[in-house]
Nucleic acid binder design. Structure first.
Lengths: 325, 325
DNA sequence: TTGTATGCGTTATCAA
DNA sequence: TTGATAACGCATACAA
């Protein structure tokens, strides 16, 4: 692997000159530039970006810490991050906390992984990444989870209560409002809800969106139509059975994620109730499986790809204003 | 950010001594070691891994090039890679080619992305990764796709015909053999197949496994039971309809992936044929949606996580033997 | 046991 | 327009 010195020697110029033609910022005569360029070509020179990083104190690399790369939301967010990063000449150093396997998919224990974060963050920061993006497994307040580093950080699919922290999330309220309105617009009048766990922010926001949509359309809110689930398939199934045994039976079920929606569909199925002929079921998240269900599920797509792009766009803009003069 | 020089100054020792206690390879008196350690603690010193990499010509970073991070197989492979990498003190520089969006999910055009690979590889190699892992979107020969770099590379979920190239894949033949035998053991005698595209290696291998299992169990091979699909849902649906209209109707369908299996299940459903009471449907891949189907699908789980681990295990062992004496 | 000094491959200042 | 040279932060050969 030739370095800048080898090029300089072969071209009978100084390393400085080679660097000048490489970075094109300082004026070099056409003649020497051409000669240097040719040598570079000949020797198939490739710059050592590690040396460059050391000198410039900038790695053009951002650290992406994802709580679990196998979580359904992670891939698309990473995809979005990578798309914009590549465009802007940044690389991605990926760190995976693997919380799902470590807590056996029991979401409420997600904070148990607290001890795993600091060493992971430290390692990645020592590699001199220019900034960090932290991607959660579900939207929640992660204040205190990530130790304070001296570099910019953007949270996605989670957030902190820090006033000067950046986070990128989708609008739960808006999404629920729109789903509900969609149901109303398509003629439904008795819209039941299978919620997520009650103390979670997404649950509250989605509920508020649902509630407001009812109000704005002059429908009466009936608490009996609200069943509390826990985000999992089983709770959707169970809640749906309860709802379907009510009279009058609701003509639509809004489940707060696709897992529970799938459970609800299966419950309808087991009672011989046809979806969507007899009842409509709407989910959230747009999990891959949704489109394979028969009958298939209507689901709110989460703008994950866009969130990834927005997260890194935010980070890079912070990086640029930070750069001293 | 304090560096080794700052520590040395505060502890009244040379930078060499600090380096010695940091790396613990050379003997340092207990007294100075303790003092240095304390200063390190006090000043919250963190080593600059970029400088270290430049000096050691080793970054402890491996480049993972994934054809598409949103492909169903990628997440688990990355998860496996990361697990072992972390254990061994390696970081992961992730590059995403995004072929799926770029070729609009038309797998057979995957090689169209040929032009995208070299610049991506060059960039990552210039960052001085110690080795590469290339993760495909479907198992196939990718010879010539990746330009020859001077560093070790391991292929996963794809392979090359190069004799000295490493690749990690699952055994299609074995998987198909086992699925077929499972069906035979559970009493099925007329086992139909919905294959993938015919010129693909996985299709051939899976077919051979199926064929051999029939033979080993003294069942007669009937070509009429083989329908050619194209890996997509629709082809599974269509092929299943053809099979279900035959007489006698097969008592089991082995679909070569879960997409087509889901299509087959839906076809059964539409004809009022009950799965698994009237007919069994078995898929491949263990896609997330499989367990949500009603009736649910039996499917061969692909050892993706294990493949990821094996890929990096291979890479690191090559790295170690390569390291000069 | 500890220190001095050099170099890893760049960039960029200053002088020529 | 070009070149000599000093950093960047670290590891290590060699000397003391």
């Amino acid at each position: 692997m030739p370095n800048i010195k080898d090029i300089a020697a072969r071209a009978n110029v100084s390393t400085a000159t080679v660097s000048y033609v490489l970075n094109g910022k300082k004026s070099v005569s056409e003649k020497t530039r051409a000669r240097v360029l040719q040598i570079i070509e000949e020797m198939n020179y490739q710059p050592n970006l590690v040396a460059k990083s050391l000198k410039l104190k900038r790695t053009q690399t951002i650290g992406v810490i994802v709580e679990d790369v196998t979580s359904f939301n992670s891939s698309e967010i990473i995809d979005g991050i990578h798309e914009y990063a590549e465009e802007q000449g940044f690389s991605i150093l990926l760190t995976n906390i693997r919380v799902l396997k470590r807590i056996d998919h029991f979401y409420s224990k997600a904070d148990r992984v607290k001890e795993l974060i600091p060493p992971a963050v430290k390692e990645i920061v020592n590699k001199q990444v220019d900034g960090l993006i932290y991607v959660g497994v579900h939207p929640r307040d992660v204040t205190g989870l990530i130790p304070d580093m001296q570099i910019p950080i953007v949270y996605s699919y989670c957030y902190t209560n820090g006033a000067d922290d950046y986070s990128v999330n989708y609008d739960d309220y808006q999404a629920a409002y729109e789903s509900t309105e969609y149901l109303i617009r398509t003629g439904h009048k008795t819209i039941a809800v299978i919620s997520g766990v009650m103390n979670s922010v997404p649950t509250k926001d989605r509920f508020n969106g649902y509630y407001q949509a009812l109000n704005d359309n002059n429908l009466i809110f009936d608490p009996a139509l609200i069943k509390t689930g826990d985000w999992e398939y089983e709770s959707g199934h169970r809640s749906a059975l309860e709802l379907l045994n009510m009279s009058p039976c609701p003509d639509a079920i809004l489940a707060m994620n696709d897992n529970m929606a799938a459970g609800a569909v299966s419950a309808c199925h087991s009672l011989g109730i046809k979806v969507p002929d007899d009842i409509s079921v709407v989910g959230f998240d747009d999990r891959e499986f949704s489109s394979y269900l028969t009958p298939s599920l209507t689901t709110m797509r989460l703008p994950l790809h866009e969130m990834g792009i927005e997260a890194i766009r935010t980070l890079i803009s912070v990086l640029n204003e930070d750069s001293p003069v």
